[in-house]
């Protein structure tokens, strides 16, 4: 639900921004980015085991906790 809310909100913002910009590349890049990040967010909300940045950081730096 949270992911969908921000998908809608960002699409509204994208719609307003696309009227101001003349570069078509920017419009499509932004739209693809919104869809990709919303998909990631959706899976993160639905799946409890989806990786978080903190888990990734501790995977790389967690061994330092023994000091």
């Amino acid at each position: 639900m949270i992911a969908l809310l921000f998908l809608v909100y960002s699409l509204v913002e994208w719609y307003m921004a696309k009227k101001k910009t003349r570069a078509p590349r920017e419009k499509w890049t932004m739209l693809i980015l919104i869809i990709l990040l919303s998909a990631w967010n959706f899976v993160a909300v639905v799946n409890d085991r989806w990786i978080t940045p903190n888990q990734l950081i501790l995977l790389l730096f967690g061994w330092m906790d023994q000091f």
């Binding site: 909100y9 913002e13 994208w14 932004m30 993160a44 909300v45 978080t52 940045p53």
Partner: peptide
């Protein structure tokens, strides 16, 4: 950072919302 990586000049509004939304989803995961 993201505007520089993707060379976006006039997309600050949607970028703020989608990155802010991602931060909120991460907070929800935590």
């Amino acid at each position: 950072c993201l505007a520089t990586l993707l060379k976006l000049k006039d997309m600050d509004g949607p970028l703020i919302v989608i990155l802010g939304g991602t931060a909120i989803v991460l907070a929800y995961q935590y």
